[in-house]
Design a binder for these strands. Structure first.
Lengths: 141, 141
DNA sequence: CAGAATCCTTTTGGATACTG
DNA sequence: CAGTATCCAAAAGGATTCTG
């Protein structure tokens, strides 16, 4: 048995929440190659605001995925790097990322197909279009 | 080169958004073993409301990850099953799920450590506690 | 059973201004 | 540079009620 990600009380859910955050994924990917400082991360990821990036980084640090090293220099410098735990997450995340990049066109096509589908039908979901799927029509009570 | 998940304009982001949705992950896991009808899914996943599950399923159907087969019976029956595209997502998602279940304790410990850390310090982020990290303190302005 | 509709609370997240 | 603080708009998400 693989587990109880299905159990809402299982802490695995919390972990999935963190991984499920899209920014976390991008942060892991960015840090997997080299460590970055704050602005580098923000610049690299693009589309993320300082506030959200800060939140993401804090949460990830709290979960032991990365460390935050402050250099008391002027101008200030803060380096973020993955912990071993964070590194262990790189491979799984890369698989997701790879999947996304590989199948993005298929998804977009499916989306177009679905969007343009409502024209002739009433936008249900295929399959019932020929009425063939109406099985039995009985139900036992 | 592995890609531009970093580019906010790249549709890969949209895909990551969908995958990043925690409910989608659980739906894929549930459907990876057998197809489910609506209530089965809701029951299995637990913690999800009908509204949110519906939204998730619609979005996933739109993206070609699953199909929704309506049986015109009474009582109504709707079966959800993964498409080949959806099936191709199972392996990557299982890796994530596996990671979560394997490292959940490490994450929780890190979280506890971090939470209890603020007692003696002022809750910054370690590393600077011994003042050792203050490098150079010069900066060339 | 499988949702749709409505309402409402909570969370998320962006823009802006400010700080050490 | 690396954030923090504040305000505010948008979206997510839950509870409830209703329907075919």
């Amino acid at each position: 048995m693989r587990g109880d990600s299905f159990d809402p009380d299982c802490p695995t859910r919390l972990v999935l929440d963190r991984i499920g955050d899209k920014w976390s994924v991008l942060v892991v990917l960015a840090l997997s190659e080299r460590d970055h400082r704050f602005t580098e991360l923000r610049d690299r990821i693009g589309g993320v605001t300082a506030k959200v990036l800060t939140q993401t980084l804090r949460a990830m640090a709290r979960d032991g995925l990365l460390t935050r090293q402050v250099f008391a220099e002027v101008p200030p410098r803060v380096e973020y790097s993955l912990t071993p735990l964070g590194h262990s997450l790189v491979a799984p995340i890369m698989m997701i990322s790879d999947w996304a990049e590989e199948h993005v066109s298929a998804v977009m096509e499916a989306r177009d197909r679905h969007d343009g589908d409502g024209r002739d039908g009433h936008g249900q979901d295929g399959r019932t279009r020929d009425g063939r799927a109406t099985a039995a029509a009985a139900g036992r009570g």
